[in-house]
Design a protein around this nucleic acid. Sequence first.
DNA 1: TGAATAGTGTCTGTAAGACAATATTCC
DNA 2: GGAATATTGTCTTACAGACACTATTCA
Lengths: 221, 221
Amino acid sequence: MNQVICTVDLVLLTLQAGELQVALLKRDREPFKDVPALPGGFIHADEDGDARFAALRVLREKTHIATPYLEQLATFSGPARDPRGWSVSIAYYALVSIDVIQQARQDQVQLIPVDKLMPLPFDHKSIVDTAVARLRSKSQYSSLPCYLAGESFTLPQLQRVYEALMGEALNKVSFRRKMNEMGMLEELDGQFGAAGAHRPAQLYRLKQEYKESLTLLERGL
Amino acid sequence: MNQVICTVDLVLLTLQAGELQVALLKRDREPFKDVPALPGGFIHADEDGDARFAALRVLREKTHIATPYLEQLATFSGPARDPRGWSVSIAYYALVSIDVIQQARQDQVQLIPVDKLMPLPFDHKSIVDTAVARLRSKSQYSSLPCYLAGESFTLPQLQRVYEALMGEALNKVSFRRKMNEMGMLEELDGQFGAAGAHRPAQLYRLKQEYKESLTLLERGL
DNA sequence: TGAATAGTGTCTGTAAGACAATATTCC
DNA sequence: GGAATATTGTCTTACAGACACTATTCA
């Protein structure tokens, strides 16, 4: 009567070609064998320190990716979401730059734009939707999008990341004021982004102390 | 190896004497029998439609309270949090006015100010801390505190609720502008709050369409 | 009328966005 | 020099908070 299936699922998000994309893997077993779905797996009570460790383990085992940012999203549950029975999925979302995915050389990973997502097994579609909503919401007042921008980036690049997530053009002066106000960036001195026939832009990176935590804005972008 | 204990826990919060308080119940069984703890229980796979229903069931069975607001908080997990083994607790938090608790006539419920909380069994203390942090954070830019104010209330009363949660005095003019801007209140026409020797205040209530959902502010209080 | 609190009008300073000027690169 | 984009300066407007004035009740 208390038999509940307990799993973790991962929404791995990245930005490619100006579009937010989610990583899917073909399932290696039933149910839904060979159908693309979120990376996920059972909690291993004998080895996992908690659900977060289970999520990191699943991400590592299935995609060989170590993410700079992982946050618990929500827990999805019920008798119908998994044909095997009453189940609980503790969902996490991770943000990585497209380079991290390409360097992992995981040919099994497919990236699908979240706005053009097909139906998915289980309730994975609504898990993705929840993650995207959370990311978009947090982007309005935090440094979260920096994790999509990679190790180093210019302010114009970072602004395009924010704009892609928020779906609207941002004021350049305000954007720079806000990034400065958040104080989580440091100049890479003397280093500039590759330029065309125009002035190159200063490169920045996240300060070490903000690699693991977010900065919040008092009043949003 | 995949044997995981699956439970829900409830952080029932209310405001009494200007202080945020959490409802605790003496546990009716081992482990920690007779020790005050959060209301909680196992998921019943044979009757619960999902974890949210399980939380509502637990709240009803243990306190006879039906809450106007219930939100999933986070999921806590690990091998050590429960002496019975590797466990998952899907935590929810609920907000009720003090009247609701008093009308439920649940003498077993004890209210403890969250800022003076003793150590609790399991990881219930950190669950409470997480809930309080979430509530305080959301209070800055949403209508969430209204659920602590009861069925009807005056604007000065509501402002005191917000101030108690945010721990700072708020500007009266701004506060009224913001509440008006959120547009979730309606006047109870001709009805006024009980007054002393001074002008009585207009009574308001949440509009029907906001009874189940929050309104958000663009820029916080 | 005086005390107390509710509710509103108005001013001021701050911050956000618009606009534009300057800077730097490659051709 | 011209094209393109980066970076910074400045002006305008909108909004948050301060202050104070009016309103309403009871003693």
